[in-house]
Design a protein around this nucleic acid. Sequence first.
DNA 1: TCCAGTTGTGTTATGCTATAACGTATGGCA
DNA 2: TGCCATACGTTATAGCATAACACAACTGGA
Lengths: 136, 136
Amino acid sequence: MTALSHPDLTRNQALVLKALDSAEGPLGAYAILDALRDKGFRAPLQVYRALDKLLEFGLVHRLESINAFVACAHPECHAHSTIAFAICEKCGKVSEFGDKEVEGRLESWARAHNFKASKTTIEIRGRCEKCAEEAA
Amino acid sequence: MTALSHPDLTRNQALVLKALDSAEGPLGAYAILDALRDKGFRAPLQVYRALDKLLEFGLVHRLESINAFVACAHPECHAHSTIAFAICEKCGKVSEFGDKEVEGRLESWARAHNFKASKTTIEIRGRCEKCAEEAA
DNA sequence: TCCAGTTGTGTTATGCTATAACGTATGGCA
DNA sequence: TGCCATACGTTATAGCATAACACAACTGGA
């Protein structure tokens, strides 16, 4: 799906990124672990440590509301700006988008309250276009 | 802190709400459980079931990014609109605020993509004014 | 009145998510 | 060579959440 190249990924990091990248939707850490058992992965920490680095590099995002991870859709521009996610609760599809207006409003709230933001999470859960049509 | 009255809270629901309301900051489900052991609580499910109802009533919010719960700061107007949270990672203080502009932008993204939103999460983590001053 | 359906409850067991603490290996560099 | 930083592997454990079962209390009809 996306470019998998990054300067200095270790073997484990590359494997975890590849697993996420080739998945249909977000994966939990244990799902990643299972996907990589045949590559020699045995323990959750192997996954979590790789994820920590990939998150730091901006190649992976964590979806807080569902405790899962996705490969970044735009890994070239690893702008560390605020990103919003729309997560389909039926099919798992995740759309990633930025909105300068939203980002600006949240920043200005923070400034007004002397709140020093370190990480901002915006996640919309619901039904994607396709799944909404088939809704019950 | 806030009004604890609500039409039809059961004993367990009222106890959980009271525990959250009298806490300094957000509480995890197991912290609530521990706080209510002397009221007869023995199992996590007693807490989670009460929380489910309180969330449904809009009297409690779940903070997805830290797996914890807070009493709603404005329980009178249980407007189920989108709310943003600023969470201090040092002292745990949570500020709750709404922003129509932000809400509007996210809604319009959803409309444009035929995404049917069911729940929106906005959480800013960082340092509150007081804790930012003492920062390392 | 009695029955059925719904909601809340209590309990045990289990599953999923994440990290602590230890030791080892490897690569860069003075 | 010796040191340091980083990654790795393993075991154990902590923290968060739900499944499945049984029982009690209430409600609204037939």
